[in-house]
Structures are given as structure tokens and as C-alpha cells.
Amino acid sequence: MNDLLNLIFRAVFIENLALSFLLGMCTYVAVSNNIKTAFGLGMAVILVETITVPINYLLYEYVLRQGALTWAGLPELDLSYLKLVTFIGVIAALVQILELVLDRFFPILFRALGIYLPLLTVNCAILGASLFMVQKNYQFIESVGYGFGVGLGWALAIIIFAAIRERLQEDKIPLGLQGLGLAFIVTGFLSLAFNGLSGLEF
């Protein structure tokens, strides 16, 4: 249990996808003008990561990995080079299904997430989490924890960033620095702050 907590803690703070791997930056910069939308997007990311990472784990473990198809009489088949296409397909299909389910059963949440849900298909933080999961050889339970952890970390990063940007709107900023330039420098400071937590363990 402690291991799992540590894993989630690492995924949220130390190996934060946005702040230490620069993943999902397009959405991160584009959708952080106010806290409300950033919060909605963050929730969508947590939801999608927690579902896609374990599903991709199952697919990789029982279909794609070398020797995974032993049960079908094909012990030497190695389909792991197909993982990119498969993962992208799974993510796109899942986002689509999630949209339908949310629309039917949780219309309030669906309306809150709005356009951000379909946009997640091309968010590299989502695909990145699945690829990291393969690289780190996680088990099923760990992959659930990892998916949730990276989602939470990404959500935290964008919500803090949006809050800082809201405050900055009232300040005088040099003309060339406005917008993207300042966004990166602020993110740099955030990333430094998260770095200070490295080495912490339960």
C-alpha cells in the first residue's frame, strides 16, 4: 500500500508530466486563461488518464508484448511496435465513448467539460502516460495508480498556472514578454517549486 502511495506521490509531484517532461504544453498554455476552465480541463484529464492507462496496460500485457500471445499458440510473435497506433486508437475511441456516456448519464459534468474532452485525444500527456507505463513495467494496480497520479499532477499544474495568470492580468508587462513568453517563465518557476519536493517519501 505504501508503495502505491509513493508511486502516486511521485507521479503527482516529482515526475509531473507538465512540469518535468513538458508534456501537454499546447493545451496547458492555450486553456489556462481562467481557473474555471482550467479546473474543468484538469478533471477531464484525471478521468481520461485513470481509464486509458490501465486499459492500455491490459492490451499491451495480453496482446502486444513479446510472448503475450502464447495462449493463442504464437509464443514468438512480438507486436510491441504496434503500440503507438493501438494506444492512439484506444484513446480516441475511449474519449468518444466517454463523451456519449457522460452526455447520457452526467449531463452537468458533460457540459462543464465541453470542448476539452475531444481535444484530449491529441494531448501528448495522455499518450505519454501510457508509453511511460510500458517503459516502467508497471503491474495492473500500479498502472491504475499511475494513471490517476499523472492526471492529478497535470490538473494541479494547470490550475495553479491559471490562478497565477489571472493575477498577472492586472500587472504591467513588457510588450514582447506578454502572452507566451511570460507563460513559459512562470511555468519555469512552478517547475522549480515542484522540483523542491524531489526526494520526499512516505
Partner: peptide, 10 residues
């Protein structure tokens, strides 16, 4: 540190 990449791009 990854932070330096952000500063340089900025």
C-alpha cells in the same frame, strides 16, 4: 533541471 528549458524558451 527541466525548469531551465522553460526559462530559455521563454
Amino acid at each position: 533541471l527541466p525548469a531551465s528549458a522553460f526559462f530559455i524558451i521563454g
